[in-house]
Design a protein around this nucleic acid. Sequence first.
DNA 1: GGAAATGTTTACCG
DNA 2: CCGGTAAACATTTC
Length: 280
Amino acid sequence: MPELPEVETVRLGLSQLVGNRILHAQDLHPRTLRSDLKLNVLSGAKIKSVNRKGKFLWFTFDYPFYLVAHLGMSGRFLVDPDGAKHNRAEFRLRKGRSEKTLIFDDQRTFGWLKVEPLNTNSEIISAQPATVAHIGIDPFAENFDSKKAIAQYQARKAGIKSLLLNQEIMSGVGNIYADEALWLANIHPNSPANLLSHNELKNLISCAKKVMKKSLQKGGTSFDALYVDVNGESGFFELSLNAYAQDGKPCKKCGSLITAIKFGGRHSHFCPNCQKIKKG
DNA sequence: GGAAATGTTTACCG
DNA sequence: CCGGTAAACATTTC
Protein backbone atom coordinates (compact mmCIF):
# COMPACT_ATOMS: atom_id res chain seq x y z
CA MET A 1 0.00 0.00 0.00
CA PRO A 2 2.30 2.50 -1.32
CA GLU A 3 1.72 6.23 -0.80
CA LEU A 4 2.33 8.15 2.39
CA PRO A 5 -0.98 7.36 4.16
CA GLU A 6 -0.70 3.67 3.35
CA VAL A 7 2.96 3.49 4.35
CA GLU A 8 2.17 5.33 7.58
CA THR A 9 -0.64 2.84 8.27
CA VAL A 10 1.92 0.06 7.90
CA ARG A 11 4.43 1.91 10.09
CA LEU A 12 1.86 2.27 12.86
CA GLY A 13 1.20 -1.46 12.68
CA LEU A 14 4.88 -2.33 12.70
CA SER A 15 5.56 -0.04 15.64
CA GLN A 16 3.64 -2.52 17.78
CA LEU A 17 6.60 -4.83 17.28
CA VAL A 18 9.01 -2.56 19.16
CA GLY A 19 10.65 -4.57 21.92
CA ASN A 20 10.56 -7.81 19.95
CA ARG A 21 13.86 -9.54 19.30
CA ILE A 22 14.62 -11.12 15.93
CA LEU A 23 15.35 -14.81 16.41
CA HIS A 24 15.90 -15.55 12.76
CA ALA A 25 15.53 -13.70 9.44
CA GLN A 26 15.93 -14.68 5.82
CA ASP A 27 15.06 -13.42 2.37
CA LEU A 28 13.07 -15.75 0.13
CA HIS A 29 13.33 -14.10 -3.27
CA PRO A 30 16.45 -13.06 -5.24
CA ARG A 31 15.18 -9.52 -5.95
CA THR A 32 14.00 -8.61 -2.48
CA LEU A 33 17.17 -8.07 -0.48
CA ARG A 34 19.10 -5.25 -2.13
CA SER A 35 22.12 -5.07 0.14
CA ASP A 36 25.24 -7.18 0.49
CA LEU A 37 24.54 -7.50 4.20
CA LYS A 38 22.21 -10.42 4.81
CA LEU A 39 19.09 -10.29 6.97
CA ASN A 40 20.57 -12.79 9.40
CA VAL A 41 23.04 -10.17 10.69
CA LEU A 42 19.95 -8.96 12.57
CA SER A 43 19.56 -12.25 14.46
CA GLY A 44 19.47 -11.37 18.14
CA ALA A 45 18.67 -7.69 17.53
CA LYS A 46 15.85 -6.01 19.43
CA ILE A 47 13.57 -3.65 17.48
CA LYS A 48 13.89 -0.14 18.91
CA SER A 49 11.82 1.97 16.51
CA VAL A 50 10.02 1.99 13.18
CA ASN A 51 10.41 5.18 11.16
CA ARG A 52 9.14 6.68 7.93
CA LYS A 53 10.24 9.39 5.50
CA GLY A 54 7.85 9.81 2.57
CA LYS A 55 7.24 6.27 1.36
CA PHE A 56 10.40 4.79 2.89
CA LEU A 57 10.38 2.79 6.13
CA TRP A 58 13.24 1.79 8.41
CA PHE A 59 13.71 -0.09 11.64
CA THR A 60 16.35 0.67 14.25
CA PHE A 61 17.76 -1.93 16.64
CA ASP A 62 20.07 -2.32 19.58
CA TYR A 63 22.52 -3.48 16.89
CA PRO A 64 24.40 -1.01 14.64
CA PHE A 65 22.25 -1.62 11.57
CA TYR A 66 19.18 -0.20 9.90
CA LEU A 67 16.63 -2.34 8.10
CA VAL A 68 15.31 -0.10 5.30
CA ALA A 69 12.16 -1.08 3.38
CA HIS A 70 10.21 0.20 0.42
CA LEU A 71 6.84 -1.33 -0.45
CA GLY A 72 7.11 -0.53 -4.16
CA MET A 73 3.77 -1.13 -5.86
CA SER A 74 2.57 -4.19 -4.01
CA GLY A 75 4.68 -4.76 -0.89
CA ARG A 76 2.99 -5.64 2.40
CA PHE A 77 4.18 -6.41 5.89
CA LEU A 78 1.99 -9.01 7.57
CA VAL A 79 2.12 -10.24 11.16
CA ASP A 80 1.20 -13.92 11.58
CA PRO A 81 -0.74 -13.94 8.28
CA ASP A 82 -3.36 -16.54 7.52
CA GLY A 83 -2.44 -16.73 3.89
CA ALA A 84 0.45 -14.70 2.56
CA LYS A 85 0.77 -15.45 -1.13
CA HIS A 86 4.08 -13.98 -2.14
CA ASN A 87 6.46 -14.34 0.79
CA ARG A 88 9.66 -12.49 -0.03
CA ALA A 89 11.22 -12.42 3.44
CA GLU A 90 10.48 -13.86 6.85
CA PHE A 91 11.35 -12.71 10.37
CA ARG A 92 10.82 -14.86 13.43
CA LEU A 93 10.27 -12.59 16.44
CA ARG A 94 10.05 -13.06 20.19
CA LYS A 95 9.06 -10.83 23.06
CA GLY A 96 8.86 -12.52 26.45
CA ARG A 97 7.14 -15.83 25.87
CA SER A 98 5.25 -14.66 22.80
CA GLU A 99 6.55 -15.51 19.31
CA LYS A 100 5.41 -13.96 16.05
CA THR A 101 6.25 -14.23 12.38
CA LEU A 102 6.62 -11.07 10.31
CA ILE A 103 6.30 -11.65 6.56
CA PHE A 104 7.30 -9.27 3.79
CA ASP A 105 4.90 -10.20 1.00
CA ASP A 106 5.21 -8.62 -2.46
CA GLN A 107 3.43 -9.71 -5.60
CA ARG A 108 5.29 -7.61 -8.13
CA THR A 109 8.68 -7.55 -6.38
CA PHE A 110 9.19 -3.82 -6.89
CA GLY A 111 9.47 -3.56 -3.14
CA TRP A 112 12.76 -4.27 -1.38
CA LEU A 113 14.64 -4.55 1.88
CA LYS A 114 18.15 -3.34 2.72
CA VAL A 115 20.36 -3.89 5.72
CA GLU A 116 22.57 -0.87 6.15
CA PRO A 117 25.23 -0.17 8.78
CA LEU A 118 24.55 2.63 11.24
CA ASN A 119 27.05 5.43 10.78
CA THR A 120 28.33 5.81 14.31
CA ASN A 121 30.79 8.55 13.44
CA SER A 122 28.21 11.27 12.97
CA GLU A 123 24.99 11.72 14.88
CA ILE A 124 23.53 13.78 12.07
CA ILE A 125 24.13 11.15 9.43
CA SER A 126 23.07 8.32 11.72
CA ALA A 127 19.69 9.97 12.25
CA GLN A 128 18.61 8.46 8.93
CA PRO A 129 19.84 5.73 6.63
CA ALA A 130 22.02 6.79 3.71
CA THR A 131 19.41 5.26 1.41
CA VAL A 132 16.88 7.96 2.27
CA ALA A 133 19.31 10.89 2.51
CA HIS A 134 18.42 12.22 -0.94
CA ILE A 135 14.67 11.91 -0.36
CA GLY A 136 12.83 15.15 0.34
CA ILE A 137 11.15 15.77 3.68
CA ASP A 138 7.46 14.86 3.67
CA PRO A 139 4.81 17.44 4.62
CA PHE A 140 3.97 15.65 7.88
CA ALA A 141 7.51 15.95 9.24
CA GLU A 142 8.09 18.66 11.86
CA ASN A 143 11.05 20.05 9.97
CA PHE A 144 9.19 20.26 6.63
CA ASP A 145 9.93 23.61 5.01
CA SER A 146 7.09 24.55 2.67
CA LYS A 147 8.82 27.74 1.51
CA LYS A 148 11.79 25.70 0.36
CA ALA A 149 9.56 23.24 -1.50
CA ILE A 150 7.61 26.10 -3.14
CA ALA A 151 10.85 27.71 -4.29
CA GLN A 152 11.99 24.41 -5.79
CA TYR A 153 8.71 23.99 -7.65
CA GLN A 154 8.80 27.54 -8.97
CA ALA A 155 12.34 27.04 -10.25
CA ARG A 156 11.12 24.41 -12.70
CA LYS A 157 9.13 24.56 -15.91
CA ALA A 158 7.93 20.97 -15.81
CA GLY A 159 4.26 20.15 -15.26
CA ILE A 160 3.37 20.45 -11.59
CA LYS A 161 2.18 16.87 -11.31
CA SER A 162 5.47 15.39 -12.41
CA LEU A 163 7.16 17.54 -9.77
CA LEU A 164 4.67 16.46 -7.10
CA LEU A 165 5.70 12.90 -7.88
CA ASN A 166 9.38 13.84 -7.59
CA GLN A 167 10.31 12.44 -4.17
CA GLU A 168 13.40 14.65 -3.87
CA ILE A 169 11.48 17.90 -3.47
CA MET A 170 8.64 16.79 -1.20
CA SER A 171 8.12 13.09 -0.57
CA GLY A 172 5.09 10.93 0.08
CA VAL A 173 2.79 11.90 -2.79
CA GLY A 174 2.07 9.28 -5.47
CA ASN A 175 -0.37 9.07 -8.35
CA ILE A 176 -3.57 8.90 -6.29
CA TYR A 177 -2.87 11.79 -3.93
CA ALA A 178 -1.31 13.93 -6.65
CA ASP A 179 -4.58 13.79 -8.59
CA GLU A 180 -6.64 14.35 -5.44
CA ALA A 181 -4.53 17.30 -4.27
CA LEU A 182 -4.57 18.97 -7.70
CA TRP A 183 -8.35 18.56 -7.93
CA LEU A 184 -8.83 20.09 -4.50
CA ALA A 185 -6.50 22.99 -5.34
CA ASN A 186 -8.06 23.58 -8.82
CA ILE A 187 -4.73 23.18 -10.60
CA HIS A 188 -4.22 21.42 -13.94
CA PRO A 189 -1.67 18.58 -13.66
CA ASN A 190 0.28 19.87 -16.66
CA SER A 191 0.47 23.49 -15.57
CA PRO A 192 4.12 24.54 -15.70
CA ALA A 193 5.23 24.92 -12.08
CA ASN A 194 7.00 28.22 -12.72
CA LEU A 195 3.69 29.81 -13.77
CA LEU A 196 2.02 29.02 -10.44
CA SER A 197 1.98 31.68 -7.76
CA HIS A 198 3.43 31.26 -4.30
CA ASN A 199 -0.07 31.13 -2.88
CA GLU A 200 -1.29 28.54 -5.37
CA LEU A 201 1.63 26.28 -4.51
CA LYS A 202 1.21 26.88 -0.81
CA ASN A 203 -2.43 25.90 -1.13
CA LEU A 204 -1.51 22.86 -3.21
CA ILE A 205 0.84 21.58 -0.52
CA SER A 206 -1.78 22.12 2.15
CA CYS A 207 -4.35 20.30 -0.02
CA ALA A 208 -1.95 17.37 -0.41
CA LYS A 209 -1.49 17.30 3.33
CA LYS A 210 -5.22 17.56 3.94
CA VAL A 211 -6.13 14.73 1.59
CA MET A 212 -3.40 12.44 2.90
CA LYS A 213 -4.36 13.13 6.50
CA LYS A 214 -7.97 12.33 5.76
CA SER A 215 -6.92 9.10 4.05
CA LEU A 216 -4.69 8.13 6.94
CA GLN A 217 -7.65 8.45 9.29
CA LYS A 218 -9.46 5.85 7.16
CA GLY A 219 -6.49 3.49 7.03
CA GLY A 220 -5.43 4.47 3.50
CA THR A 221 -6.70 3.54 0.05
CA SER A 222 -7.26 -0.14 -0.77
CA PHE A 223 -8.61 -1.06 -4.18
CA ASP A 224 -8.14 -4.73 -3.40
CA ALA A 225 -6.60 -7.03 -0.82
CA LEU A 226 -3.07 -6.19 -2.01
CA TYR A 227 -3.07 -3.02 0.03
CA VAL A 228 -3.65 -3.81 3.64
CA ASP A 229 -2.23 -3.12 7.06
CA VAL A 230 -0.09 -5.57 9.06
CA ASN A 231 -3.25 -7.37 10.16
CA GLY A 232 -4.53 -7.76 6.61
CA GLU A 233 -7.22 -5.07 6.99
CA SER A 234 -8.12 -2.79 4.07
CA GLY A 235 -8.47 0.99 4.27
CA PHE A 236 -11.56 2.80 3.07
CA PHE A 237 -10.35 6.02 1.50
CA GLU A 238 -11.32 4.76 -1.96
CA LEU A 239 -14.87 5.83 -1.10
CA SER A 240 -13.69 9.42 -0.72
CA LEU A 241 -11.82 9.79 -4.01
CA ASN A 242 -12.82 12.82 -6.08
CA ALA A 243 -10.50 12.60 -9.07
CA TYR A 244 -8.34 9.47 -9.19
CA ALA A 245 -10.03 6.75 -11.28
CA GLN A 246 -13.17 8.90 -11.43
CA ASP A 247 -12.99 9.58 -15.20
CA GLY A 248 -16.43 9.71 -16.77
CA LYS A 249 -18.04 10.66 -13.48
CA PRO A 250 -19.26 14.17 -12.70
CA CYS A 251 -16.94 16.51 -10.84
CA LYS A 252 -18.32 16.98 -7.34
CA LYS A 253 -17.69 20.72 -7.54
CA CYS A 254 -19.15 21.63 -10.94
CA GLY A 255 -20.70 18.55 -12.54
CA SER A 256 -18.38 18.48 -15.57
CA LEU A 257 -17.07 15.03 -16.40
CA ILE A 258 -13.68 14.09 -14.96
CA THR A 259 -11.25 13.24 -17.76
CA ALA A 260 -8.13 11.12 -17.85
CA ILE A 261 -4.97 11.89 -19.78
CA LYS A 262 -1.84 9.83 -20.09
CA PHE A 263 1.58 11.07 -19.18
CA GLY A 264 4.75 9.11 -18.66
CA GLY A 265 2.89 5.84 -18.85
CA ARG A 266 0.45 6.73 -16.11
CA HIS A 267 -2.90 8.41 -15.97
CA SER A 268 -3.86 11.80 -14.59
CA HIS A 269 -7.49 12.44 -13.70
CA PHE A 270 -8.85 15.95 -13.45
CA CYS A 271 -11.83 18.22 -14.02
CA PRO A 272 -11.40 20.14 -17.29
CA ASN A 273 -13.59 22.95 -15.98
CA CYS A 274 -12.19 23.47 -12.47
CA GLN A 275 -8.58 22.73 -13.40
CA LYS A 276 -7.58 24.97 -16.32
CA ILE A 277 -4.03 24.79 -17.61
CA LYS A 278 -1.83 27.86 -17.12
CA LYS A 279 -0.12 29.29 -20.15
CA GLY A 280 2.74 31.72 -20.21
C1' DG B 1 -5.33 -11.58 -25.45
C1' DG B 2 -4.37 -6.83 -24.23
C1' DA B 3 -4.11 -3.32 -20.90
C1' DA B 4 -3.47 -1.60 -16.59
C1' DA B 5 -2.04 -1.46 -11.67
C1' DT B 6 -0.98 3.34 -5.55
C1' DG B 7 6.90 3.19 -7.60
C1' DT B 8 11.63 4.12 -8.75
C1' DT B 9 15.48 4.28 -11.67
C1' DT B 10 17.70 4.68 -15.91
C1' DA B 11 18.18 5.81 -20.64
C1' DC B 12 17.53 8.43 -24.67
C1' DC B 13 16.65 12.47 -27.38
C1' DG B 14 16.30 17.37 -28.00
C1' DC C 1 21.52 20.50 -16.41
C1' DC C 2 16.43 20.39 -17.76
C1' DG C 3 12.29 18.37 -19.79
C1' DG C 4 9.63 14.92 -22.02
C1' DT C 5 9.09 10.33 -22.93
C1' DA C 6 9.66 5.55 -22.65
C1' DA C 7 11.22 1.43 -20.77
C1' DA C 8 12.65 -1.71 -17.35
C1' DC C 9 11.58 -4.45 -13.33
C1' DA C 10 7.23 -8.88 -12.44
C1' DT C 11 2.79 -10.56 -11.51
C1' DT C 12 -1.92 -10.70 -11.37
C1' DT C 13 -6.39 -9.06 -12.45
C1' DC C 14 -10.03 -7.14 -15.36
